[in-house]
Design a protein around this nucleic acid. Structure first.
Lengths: 179, 179
DNA sequence: TATTTTAGGTTCCAAAAAGGAACTTGTCAA
DNA sequence: TTGACAAGTTCCTTTTTGGAACCTAAAATA
């Protein structure tokens, strides 16, 4: 009766969720991005129990998202630092905080702000197309999931580029209409 | 000894994680994007237990991410459809699957593909700046978290635009180096 | 019309994970 | 040498999952 693992599913989303798909892991990483590095700092800032923290840090190190680096004279104390693989999660955080800012807070009260070094402006992170540079959102992108996932969903070939991301206008809903 | 809630934390990331911060919720939504709408379809495709599914669908409806729409003659059977709020999570999924494709699979074997309707190309989703349109990644963006979060982290004002996202070059790490 | 299947759950139980708190082991600093 | 700090580990209790069976109403089929 082991808890279900998503790590063997043939889908980038499922496998990613197998790694970061719990709230403590993501909050630990959020604090890594905010320069927290040490066990007790994570524990005090986040308020999670020590053995959950131990477990999550170990997994993140095993996955290569954090690295455990000795510091101090003795070499028996460690800091947890983001690897390149870990830093590459930045767009996931940006997308999440942008969604949270838009839907969970008043616009004027957004708790997370980003500043783009290249242009110096406070900005919103926008998904764009690697080919044409245009904005990509749920109204103008289609996605396909790879054959293995398709088969578990029993989709026909002609449906494979038809995820809801590219829904028809009739199925759009108003903002703030959740009835 | 209730499980910790992140919904009251003054941070868009924490609150978002309070809502979608578990792996089943995100996989349910992934399947919503793939046009799954009905209870039993979710259950068979994902293989989760029925009462976890009941619980997650209810929460997603309560949060306004899904809407429960009657169908059929009697009006006593329901479909779960993404609201606008739910569809707005598309960038989070794109960022996650893009990270998974890059770090968890061989390049040639990426299980999730995106096609941009505007230009017709298979594309990668790229985070860009709403002001200048340039690429935004961990090397050229800084982030700040809002005063309330800063206070829990005891950061000084001058550190507030200094999240690791904009780390110094000396602290970069090689891809595939997780030692 | 009677029976079966489908949809959307609920109930029950055992196992796993999370929370709370105290305890350990080694370092450092006064 | 005493006390505080860092990084865990251990013990115990409560919540959540997983697995499977059961329930009720609506639709389909024979």
């Amino acid at each position: 009766m082991k808890r279900t693992s998503h790590n063997d599913k043939p889908c980038g989303i499922a496998q990613t969720l197998g790694i970061i798909g719990d709230s403590w892991t993501m909050l630990i990483l959020r604090n890594c991005f905010m320069r927290t590095r040490r066990f007790d700092d994570f524990q005090h800032q986040l308020g999670l129990t020590r053995h959950v923290l131990t477990d999550r840090l170990k997994k993140l190190v095993d996955y290569g998202i954090l690295k455990k680096v000795p510091y101090g004279e003795s070499g028996k104390r460690y800091e947890y630092l983001l690897t390149h693989k870990g830093k590459s999660l930045a767009p996931v955080f940006m997308a999440m905080s942008n969604w949270g800012n838009e839907w969970l807070f008043e616009d004027s009260n957004a708790p997370t702000l980003y500043k783009h070094q290249a242009c110096g402006q406070v900005m919103q992170p926008v998904m764009s197309c690697s080919c044409c540079g245009g904005v990509v959102d749920s109204s103008n992108v289609k996605m396909t999931m790879g054959h293995a996932v398709q088969e578990t969903m029993k989709q026909e070939p002609e449906e494979r580029w038809d995820a809801v991301l590219g829904f028809s206008p009739a199925q759009n809903f108003e903002k703030n209409n959740n009835s």
